[in-house]
């Protein structure tokens, strides 16, 4: 398993447009990626490709999250998702 951390850059948090951009990108990777708050236990992680789950997570601007995948070859894919989270999509 590999994991990467990211800080939410979008000012509205991970909702609305930022959430749909992220979920779509995660869906296109073809691998299973989960996302959770850094402070939350692993079993509270949700599917990264579900916009509804992301909305339910309710992560706000400036919060630290962790992306995880069981696919050890997917380091680059995780990095691409980190870049999306660390971009302000409301700017």
């Amino acid at each position: 398993m590999i994991e990467r951390s990211a800080t939410i850059a979008s000012t509205v948090g991970l909702h609305a447009r930022p959430a749909s951009i992220f979920a779509e990108a995660a869906g296109e990777l073809g691998i299973e990626v989960t996302i959770a708050r850094a402070s939350d236990p692993v079993d509270e992680a949700v599917d990264a490709d579900s916009m509804l789950a992301l909305m339910g997570l309710g992560v706000e601007h400036g919060e630290l999250v962790v992306l995880r995948t069981e696919d050890d070859t997917a380091a680059e894919a995780l990095e691409s998702l980190v870049r999306i989270l660390e971009t302000n999509h409301d700017a």
Binding site: A16, S20, M51
Partner: peptide, 18 residues
Amino acid sequence: KDVLEATALMATDPMLIK
């Protein structure tokens, strides 16, 4: 447009479908 696009995405949302 934004609302419709977000709504469109919900129709195949893995959480909902699962």
